[in-house]
Design a protein around this nucleic acid. Structure first.
Lengths: 230, 230
DNA sequence: ACCTGAACACCGTTCAAGT
DNA sequence: ACCTGAACACCGTTCAAGT
């Protein structure tokens, strides 16, 4: 192979280094801004201010704000818990993964429209998650053609459910239209609230119900695939 | 009751009427802009231009752009097909509803973050859909406490899946990282593509698998609720 | 190679002034 | 009551100029 051009670090006195920024520094600053002020606070000028730099300087390291969102996305994907695959039964591993995945993205819902549509090329942590998942599905006896559709189905449910977590508890109050919609209004009052932790009992109950349904229903789809052949 | 202040229409010669705008006119114009140029084209000034009016005039009828999105949302909700409930078996009705719901919102994904988080008060068509759904679930023997969680679970899956429809077919190409993620790359190549119409075979296959899984899995959850009691 | 400063082409929204 | 026109406080992004 040809010699690699390794960056030479020649310390020239105490004068200030010219390189201040990097993709990593931008990602970290973005996460701080989001944590403190939400996605409204994530602006290119806010990022620049936080890094002590002019906004235009950012464009030496990222091509656009969209690029920043992708960096953030791949970074937080490492917080999704895939440890169950290979260690626990399939359904237990899916359960652990799904709850942690929803938890992570309920804090980052503005990323969902971005990642659900974006090629996974160049998102190494995201790919690593998919590799773990695939491995776990295959080891549990899933036929290869169903693995990706099953993962996508679960992921779609998780993304949709992440929005729910941030919804106010009174989202289904029908107000003065209650009398015109009596059955729905009654069902809202009667709805189940258990099945989860503290913060959002109704969202948790719906997520638990859907997830348990998906887990058993997908297993049934797998069995009927095995019976029918392709 | 007190006398209602009905709008008097006094025709004063042929001089131009002063009222040009209305919520309805704004909604229709918004739908036209979205249809021709997508949600990027939906700006307050674009709306005003299309209606032959100054941008500030819009604020006599809506409080914000967010308001416009809500008008659009409730308008298109009427396109979701709930005709199966009361006419077909529960699973068939859910199938018809779910496919049409995904179809409608795959054209309007920018609405999803808005509606998933917004109180349903003052969205009459949306409430009417929920009333139909509730009625159908109850008639099929669903226990009242599970109706809303089941609807929310299905809706979450549908919203997440609506994003998938707009994703490029090569979204899972791992590029040069393919060798580092061999099982996933192979599963992507082997994935099932049937189970839907023409335009997006892989998204359709995932949606079909997840929906069929959810339908049978939710029915199982319903049975186990009946067995356990509350 | 990397950063600064000024500028550009937009946004959504407000508000005094007109009729 | 409803619309106009000007203004405000932002956005993300570009680009010549500096070192």
């Amino acid at each position: 192979m040809t010699a690699e051009a390794a960056p030479r670090k020649h310390r020239t006195a105490g004068r200030p280094v010219q390189k201040i920024l990097s993709k990593e520094a931008i990602t970290v600053a973005a996460l701080k801004l989001i944590a403190s002020g939400g996605y409204d606070a994530l602006t290119m000028s806010g990022l620049a201010r936080h890094l002590g730099v002019a906004p235009s300087a950012l464009y030496n390291h990222v091509a656009s704000k969209h690029d920043v969102l992708l960096l953030v996305q791949d970074h937080i994907m490492a917080n999704v818990d895939v440890s169950g695959f290979g260690a626990l039964p399939w359904d237990e591993a899916v359960r652990r993964w799904a709850w942690s995945y929803r938890e992570v993205f309920s804090q980052h819902t503005p990323l969902i429209p971005v990642i659900a549509v974006l090629p996974v090329t160049g998102a190494p942590r995201t790919l690593a998650m998919y590799e773990e998942l695939t491995s776990g599905f295959l080891a549990a006896g899933w036929p290869e053609p169903l693995v990706v559709p099953a993962i996508v189905a679960l992921e779609s449910f998780i993304f949709g459910s992440a929005f729910d977590v941030t919804a106010p508890e009174d989202i289904f109050e029908s107000g003065e239209l209650a009398k015109a919609n009596p059955k729905f209004s009654a069902a809202v009052r009667a709805r189940q609230r258990n099945g989860g932790s503290a913060a959002s009992p109704t969202a948790d109950a719906a997520f638990r119900l859907g997830l348990e349904g998906l887990i058993s229903g997908l297993e049934e789809q797998r069995r009927s695939w095995a019976a029918h052949g392709a």
